[in-house]
Write a protein that binds this DNA or RNA. Structure first.
Length: 340
DNA sequence: GACATTTGACCAAC
DNA sequence: GTTGGTCAAATGTC
Protein backbone atom coordinates (compact mmCIF):
# COMPACT_ATOMS: atom_id res chain seq x y z
CA UNK A 1 0.00 0.00 0.00
CA UNK A 2 1.45 3.34 -0.98
CA UNK A 3 0.89 6.54 0.88
CA UNK A 4 0.74 9.71 -1.11
CA UNK A 5 3.18 12.23 0.35
CA UNK A 6 0.49 14.85 0.03
CA UNK A 7 -2.14 12.74 1.69
CA UNK A 8 -4.02 14.09 4.68
CA UNK A 9 -4.46 12.28 7.92
CA UNK A 10 -8.11 11.73 7.14
CA UNK A 11 -7.16 10.06 3.85
CA UNK A 12 -4.75 7.73 5.58
CA UNK A 13 -7.32 6.84 8.20
CA UNK A 14 -9.91 6.31 5.51
CA UNK A 15 -7.59 3.87 3.79
CA UNK A 16 -7.21 2.12 7.13
CA UNK A 17 -10.98 1.93 7.43
CA UNK A 18 -11.16 0.32 4.01
CA UNK A 19 -8.46 -2.13 4.95
CA UNK A 20 -10.34 -3.03 8.10
CA UNK A 21 -13.50 -3.70 6.09
CA UNK A 22 -11.57 -5.99 3.78
CA UNK A 23 -10.05 -7.78 6.75
CA UNK A 24 -13.45 -8.24 8.34
CA UNK A 25 -14.82 -9.66 5.11
CA UNK A 26 -11.90 -12.04 4.97
CA UNK A 27 -12.35 -13.12 8.56
CA UNK A 28 -16.06 -13.72 8.10
CA UNK A 29 -15.31 -17.10 6.60
CA UNK A 30 -13.00 -19.93 7.69
CA UNK A 31 -9.39 -19.23 6.87
CA UNK A 32 -7.21 -21.56 4.90
CA UNK A 33 -3.48 -20.96 4.73
CA UNK A 34 -3.92 -18.52 1.87
CA UNK A 35 -6.56 -16.68 3.84
CA UNK A 36 -4.22 -16.46 6.79
CA UNK A 37 -1.54 -14.95 4.59
CA UNK A 38 -4.01 -12.42 3.27
CA UNK A 39 -5.19 -11.57 6.76
CA UNK A 40 -1.58 -11.14 7.78
CA UNK A 41 -0.99 -8.79 4.87
CA UNK A 42 -4.07 -6.74 5.70
CA UNK A 43 -3.08 -6.58 9.31
CA UNK A 44 0.43 -5.42 8.48
CA UNK A 45 -0.97 -2.72 6.27
CA UNK A 46 -3.24 -1.66 9.09
CA UNK A 47 -0.23 -1.45 11.35
CA UNK A 48 1.42 0.76 8.80
CA UNK A 49 -1.66 2.93 8.60
CA UNK A 50 -1.56 3.39 12.36
CA UNK A 51 2.13 4.12 12.23
CA UNK A 52 1.76 6.73 9.53
CA UNK A 53 -1.23 8.28 11.27
CA UNK A 54 0.63 8.54 14.56
CA UNK A 55 3.65 9.96 12.81
CA UNK A 56 1.45 12.58 11.25
CA UNK A 57 -0.02 13.44 14.62
CA UNK A 58 3.34 13.50 16.37
CA UNK A 59 5.04 15.57 13.75
CA UNK A 60 2.09 17.89 13.40
CA UNK A 61 2.44 17.35 9.72
CA UNK A 62 0.38 15.69 7.06
CA UNK A 63 3.16 13.35 6.06
CA UNK A 64 5.00 10.66 8.01
CA UNK A 65 8.75 11.29 8.32
CA UNK A 66 9.90 8.28 6.38
CA UNK A 67 7.38 8.99 3.69
CA UNK A 68 8.15 12.66 3.54
CA UNK A 69 11.90 12.40 3.25
CA UNK A 70 12.44 8.87 2.10
CA UNK A 71 15.17 8.68 4.70
CA UNK A 72 14.78 10.39 7.99
CA UNK A 73 18.21 9.31 9.14
CA UNK A 74 20.20 11.60 6.97
CA UNK A 75 22.24 8.70 5.67
CA UNK A 76 22.86 9.10 2.00
CA UNK A 77 21.00 6.61 -0.15
CA UNK A 78 20.69 6.24 -3.88
CA UNK A 79 18.09 8.43 -5.48
CA UNK A 80 16.35 5.37 -6.86
CA UNK A 81 15.83 3.98 -3.40
CA UNK A 82 14.49 7.27 -2.13
CA UNK A 83 12.06 7.40 -5.00
CA UNK A 84 10.97 3.84 -4.51
CA UNK A 85 10.48 4.33 -0.82
CA UNK A 86 8.47 7.49 -1.11
CA UNK A 87 6.24 5.73 -3.57
CA UNK A 88 5.72 2.65 -1.49
CA UNK A 89 5.40 3.54 2.15
CA UNK A 90 8.86 2.42 3.25
CA UNK A 91 9.14 -0.66 1.08
CA UNK A 92 11.88 -0.49 -1.51
CA UNK A 93 11.36 -2.31 -4.77
CA UNK A 94 14.41 -4.46 -5.49
CA UNK A 95 16.48 -3.62 -8.52
CA UNK A 96 17.43 -6.23 -11.10
CA UNK A 97 20.86 -6.52 -9.54
CA UNK A 98 19.32 -6.97 -6.10
CA UNK A 99 17.08 -9.74 -7.37
CA UNK A 100 20.08 -11.50 -8.83
CA UNK A 101 21.63 -11.39 -5.37
CA UNK A 102 18.51 -12.97 -3.94
CA UNK A 103 17.20 -9.78 -2.42
CA UNK A 104 13.45 -9.87 -2.63
CA UNK A 105 12.51 -6.86 -0.54
CA UNK A 106 13.87 -3.94 1.39
CA UNK A 107 12.01 -2.14 4.09
CA UNK A 108 12.61 0.84 6.28
CA UNK A 109 10.76 0.25 9.47
CA UNK A 110 10.90 1.16 13.16
CA UNK A 111 9.94 -2.45 13.92
CA UNK A 112 12.33 -4.81 12.16
CA UNK A 113 11.10 -7.94 13.89
CA UNK A 114 7.51 -7.52 12.81
CA UNK A 115 7.09 -9.76 9.82
CA UNK A 116 5.39 -12.82 11.21
CA UNK A 117 8.35 -15.12 10.90
CA UNK A 118 10.70 -16.53 13.46
CA UNK A 119 14.34 -15.60 12.94
CA UNK A 120 17.57 -16.89 14.38
CA UNK A 121 20.46 -14.51 14.56
CA UNK A 122 23.57 -15.98 13.03
CA UNK A 123 25.86 -13.02 12.72
CA UNK A 124 26.60 -9.48 13.66
CA UNK A 125 29.01 -7.21 11.89
CA UNK A 126 30.29 -3.74 12.44
CA UNK A 127 29.77 -1.95 9.16
CA UNK A 128 32.04 0.81 8.00
CA UNK A 129 30.61 4.32 8.31
CA UNK A 130 27.73 3.03 10.39
CA UNK A 131 27.32 3.66 14.09
CA UNK A 132 25.35 0.47 14.54
CA UNK A 133 26.21 -3.11 13.78
CA UNK A 134 24.40 -5.03 11.10
CA UNK A 135 22.54 -8.12 12.27
CA UNK A 136 22.08 -11.25 10.21
CA UNK A 137 19.12 -13.55 10.66
CA UNK A 138 17.99 -16.83 9.15
CA UNK A 139 14.48 -18.20 9.12
CA UNK A 140 14.06 -20.38 12.16
CA UNK A 141 10.85 -22.10 11.17
CA UNK A 142 12.56 -24.77 9.17
CA UNK A 143 16.19 -25.73 9.10
CA UNK A 144 16.29 -25.82 5.32
CA UNK A 145 14.41 -22.61 4.71
CA UNK A 146 16.82 -20.30 2.94
CA UNK A 147 15.12 -17.05 3.80
CA UNK A 148 17.39 -14.55 5.49
CA UNK A 149 17.23 -10.98 6.53
CA UNK A 150 19.70 -8.26 7.39
CA UNK A 151 18.85 -5.54 9.84
CA UNK A 152 20.76 -2.30 9.86
CA UNK A 153 19.81 0.53 12.15
CA UNK A 154 20.09 3.95 10.63
CA UNK A 155 22.65 6.22 12.21
CA UNK A 156 20.63 9.31 12.95
CA UNK A 157 17.12 10.42 13.58
CA UNK A 158 14.45 8.34 15.28
CA UNK A 159 15.15 4.60 15.48
CA UNK A 160 14.66 3.30 11.97
CA UNK A 161 15.92 0.03 10.57
CA UNK A 162 16.75 -1.00 7.06
CA UNK A 163 15.59 -4.58 6.72
CA UNK A 164 16.78 -6.50 3.67
CA UNK A 165 15.04 -9.78 2.94
CA UNK A 166 17.07 -12.33 1.02
CA UNK A 167 15.60 -15.46 -0.56
CA UNK A 168 11.97 -16.48 -0.46
CA UNK A 169 10.64 -18.53 2.43
CA UNK A 170 10.48 -22.22 1.63
CA UNK A 171 9.48 -23.22 5.15
CA UNK A 172 5.80 -23.46 4.16
CA UNK A 173 6.45 -26.26 1.66
CA UNK A 174 9.11 -27.87 3.81
CA UNK A 175 6.86 -28.01 6.84
CA UNK A 176 3.88 -29.21 4.83
CA UNK A 177 5.92 -32.04 3.35
CA UNK A 178 7.21 -32.91 6.80
CA UNK A 179 3.69 -33.04 8.15
CA UNK A 180 2.58 -35.23 5.25
CA UNK A 181 5.41 -37.60 5.99
CA UNK A 182 4.48 -37.70 9.66
CA UNK A 183 0.84 -38.40 8.84
CA UNK A 184 1.81 -41.14 6.39
CA UNK A 185 4.01 -42.74 8.98
CA UNK A 186 1.14 -42.66 11.45
CA UNK A 187 -1.18 -44.34 8.94
CA UNK A 188 1.41 -47.04 8.32
CA UNK A 189 1.85 -47.63 12.02
CA UNK A 190 -1.70 -48.46 12.90
CA UNK A 191 -5.15 -48.79 11.28
CA UNK A 192 -6.76 -46.01 13.20
CA UNK A 193 -9.94 -44.24 12.32
CA UNK A 194 -9.87 -41.00 10.39
CA UNK A 195 -10.76 -38.96 13.43
CA UNK A 196 -8.00 -40.56 15.40
CA UNK A 197 -5.51 -39.87 12.61
CA UNK A 198 -6.60 -36.25 12.71
CA UNK A 199 -6.02 -36.25 16.42
CA UNK A 200 -2.56 -37.63 15.84
CA UNK A 201 -1.82 -35.03 13.21
CA UNK A 202 -2.83 -32.40 15.72
CA UNK A 203 -0.57 -33.93 18.32
CA UNK A 204 2.28 -34.01 15.85
CA UNK A 205 1.58 -30.39 15.10
CA UNK A 206 1.59 -29.51 18.75
CA UNK A 207 4.80 -31.39 19.35
CA UNK A 208 6.35 -29.40 16.55
CA UNK A 209 5.55 -26.19 18.32
CA UNK A 210 2.66 -24.87 16.30
CA UNK A 211 -0.23 -26.64 17.82
CA UNK A 212 -2.94 -24.61 16.16
CA UNK A 213 -2.26 -25.63 12.61
CA UNK A 214 -5.59 -25.89 10.88
CA UNK A 215 -7.36 -24.20 13.74
CA UNK A 216 -10.58 -25.33 15.35
CA UNK A 217 -13.77 -23.37 14.91
CA UNK A 218 -13.31 -22.12 18.43
CA UNK A 219 -9.82 -20.95 17.67
CA UNK A 220 -10.91 -19.26 14.49
CA UNK A 221 -13.66 -17.52 16.39
CA UNK A 222 -11.18 -16.37 18.99
CA UNK A 223 -8.87 -15.15 16.26
CA UNK A 224 -11.64 -13.12 14.67
CA UNK A 225 -12.57 -11.75 18.07
CA UNK A 226 -9.02 -10.72 18.87
CA UNK A 227 -8.34 -9.10 15.54
CA UNK A 228 -11.66 -7.32 15.44
CA UNK A 229 -11.12 -6.05 18.97
CA UNK A 230 -7.66 -4.79 18.17
CA UNK A 231 -8.88 -3.08 15.05
CA UNK A 232 -11.68 -1.46 17.00
CA UNK A 233 -9.30 -0.42 19.74
CA UNK A 234 -9.77 -2.85 22.60
CA UNK A 235 -8.47 -6.28 23.47
CA UNK A 236 -10.84 -8.79 25.02
CA UNK A 237 -9.74 -11.29 27.63
CA UNK A 238 -8.54 -14.56 26.15
CA UNK A 239 -11.20 -17.21 25.61
CA UNK A 240 -11.86 -19.55 28.48
CA UNK A 241 -10.31 -22.37 26.51
CA UNK A 242 -6.97 -20.87 27.30
CA UNK A 243 -6.28 -19.81 23.74
CA UNK A 244 -4.09 -18.11 22.82
CA UNK A 245 -1.45 -19.45 25.17
CA UNK A 246 0.09 -16.69 27.24
CA UNK A 247 3.05 -18.20 29.02
CA UNK A 248 3.99 -15.01 30.78
CA UNK A 249 0.55 -14.40 32.12
CA UNK A 250 -0.27 -17.95 33.02
CA UNK A 251 3.02 -18.77 34.59
CA UNK A 252 3.78 -15.72 36.65
CA UNK A 253 0.57 -13.78 36.81
CA UNK A 254 -2.55 -15.87 36.42
CA UNK A 255 -4.79 -12.87 36.80
CA UNK A 256 -3.13 -11.09 33.93
CA UNK A 257 -4.59 -13.49 31.40
CA UNK A 258 -8.05 -12.19 32.05
CA UNK A 259 -7.18 -8.55 32.55
CA UNK A 260 -8.77 -6.30 30.01
CA UNK A 261 -6.57 -3.66 28.51
CA UNK A 262 -6.44 -0.87 26.02
CA UNK A 263 -4.20 -1.11 23.04
CA UNK A 264 -1.88 1.82 23.29
CA UNK A 265 0.10 1.41 20.11
CA UNK A 266 0.52 -0.71 17.05
CA UNK A 267 2.52 -3.27 18.94
CA UNK A 268 -0.46 -5.11 20.27
CA UNK A 269 -1.82 -5.16 16.77
CA UNK A 270 1.31 -6.72 15.50
CA UNK A 271 1.45 -9.23 18.29
CA UNK A 272 -2.01 -10.27 17.34
CA UNK A 273 -0.93 -10.63 13.77
CA UNK A 274 1.95 -12.76 14.90
CA UNK A 275 -0.61 -15.25 16.05
CA UNK A 276 -2.14 -15.54 12.62
CA UNK A 277 0.99 -16.13 10.66
CA UNK A 278 1.11 -19.28 8.65
CA UNK A 279 2.77 -21.24 11.41
CA UNK A 280 -0.78 -21.71 12.56
CA UNK A 281 -1.58 -19.06 15.12
CA UNK A 282 1.56 -19.55 17.12
CA UNK A 283 2.88 -16.83 19.39
CA UNK A 284 6.07 -15.27 18.34
CA UNK A 285 8.71 -16.59 20.72
CA UNK A 286 10.45 -13.27 21.05
CA UNK A 287 7.59 -10.92 21.49
CA UNK A 288 4.43 -11.49 23.37
CA UNK A 289 2.01 -9.33 25.18
CA UNK A 290 3.09 -8.63 28.70
CA UNK A 291 0.90 -6.73 31.12
CA UNK A 292 2.69 -3.91 32.86
CA UNK A 293 1.88 -1.51 35.59
CA UNK A 294 -1.00 0.74 34.82
CA UNK A 295 0.10 4.01 33.38
CA UNK A 296 -1.49 7.31 34.20
CA UNK A 297 -3.61 7.01 31.10
CA UNK A 298 -4.94 3.66 32.21
CA UNK A 299 -4.07 0.03 31.62
CA UNK A 300 -1.78 -0.48 28.70
CA UNK A 301 -0.04 -3.28 27.01
CA UNK A 302 3.50 -3.06 25.85
CA UNK A 303 5.47 -5.73 24.13
CA UNK A 304 8.42 -7.16 25.87
CA UNK A 305 10.82 -9.88 25.00
CA UNK A 306 9.99 -12.66 27.43
CA UNK A 307 13.44 -14.11 27.00
CA UNK A 308 14.94 -10.91 28.31
CA UNK A 309 12.19 -9.85 30.65
CA UNK A 310 14.41 -10.39 33.64
CA UNK A 311 17.58 -8.98 32.22
CA UNK A 312 19.04 -5.74 33.43
CA UNK A 313 20.84 -5.04 30.20
CA UNK A 314 17.68 -5.06 28.17
CA UNK A 315 15.15 -2.38 28.79
CA UNK A 316 12.03 -1.25 27.09
CA UNK A 317 10.98 2.34 27.09
CA UNK A 318 7.51 3.01 25.84
CA UNK A 319 8.39 6.66 25.29
CA UNK A 320 11.07 5.84 22.82
CA UNK A 321 10.56 6.84 19.24
CA UNK A 322 7.17 8.38 19.57
CA UNK A 323 5.81 5.87 22.01
CA UNK A 324 6.39 2.67 20.11
CA UNK A 325 7.54 0.20 22.68
CA UNK A 326 9.25 -2.04 20.18
CA UNK A 327 11.36 0.54 18.50
CA UNK A 328 14.19 0.03 20.95
CA UNK A 329 15.13 -3.13 19.08
CA UNK A 330 18.01 -3.60 18.68
CA UNK A 331 19.23 -0.06 19.16
CA UNK A 332 19.30 -0.06 22.93
CA UNK A 333 21.39 -3.17 22.94
CA UNK A 334 24.35 -1.62 21.24
CA UNK A 335 27.22 -2.49 23.48
CA UNK A 336 24.95 -4.11 26.00
CA UNK A 337 24.50 -7.09 23.70
CA UNK A 338 28.17 -7.55 23.38
CA UNK A 339 30.16 -9.08 26.11
CA UNK A 340 32.21 -6.67 28.18
C1' DG B 1 20.89 -31.82 27.57
C1' DA B 2 18.88 -29.12 23.99
C1' DC B 3 18.62 -25.07 21.91
C1' DA B 4 19.66 -20.11 21.06
C1' DT B 5 22.96 -16.41 21.01
C1' DT B 6 27.47 -14.36 20.78
C1' DT B 7 31.60 -13.35 18.56
C1' DG B 8 36.18 -14.19 16.59
C1' DA B 9 37.78 -16.21 12.49
C1' DC B 10 37.49 -17.30 7.87
C1' DC B 11 36.33 -16.56 3.01
C1' DA B 12 34.99 -14.31 -1.27
C1' DA B 13 34.32 -10.15 -3.78
C1' DC B 14 35.95 -5.82 -4.98
C1' DG C 1 44.12 -4.77 1.64
C1' DT C 2 39.42 -3.83 2.87
C1' DT C 3 34.84 -5.01 3.53
C1' DG C 4 30.62 -7.63 3.96
C1' DG C 5 28.74 -12.16 4.77
C1' DT C 6 28.97 -16.61 6.96
C1' DC C 7 30.65 -20.26 9.93
C1' DA C 8 31.30 -22.56 14.10
C1' DA C 9 33.07 -22.98 18.78
C1' DA C 10 32.10 -21.00 23.11
C1' DT C 11 28.77 -19.48 26.06
C1' DG C 12 24.23 -18.64 28.03
C1' DT C 13 19.49 -19.94 29.08
C1' DC C 14 15.80 -22.89 30.06
Amino acid sequence: MAFDPDAKLSDVLASGYDLNNQLQALLSRPLDSRGQELAMAFSQELSRVFLVSLSMLNSNSSVAPEVRTGNSSGVSTPAKEKRARSDNGGVVTPTKKSREEGIIRKEFTPSPHKDGYQWRKYGQKKIQNCNFSRYYFKCNRHRRCEAKKKVQQQDAGPPMFEVTYVNEHTCHELRASDDDAAAAAARMASPWTTSRRHALAGAVDTARGHGHGAGSAEENEAMVSCLAAVVSGSVPPPPSSGWPPAPEASASDPDAAGRSATVADDEAMMTMTMMVDDTGFSWDPWWSLCPVEEAASGPQLVVMNPANHHRDDMHMDKDDAGGFADTVWPEHTCGAWRRA
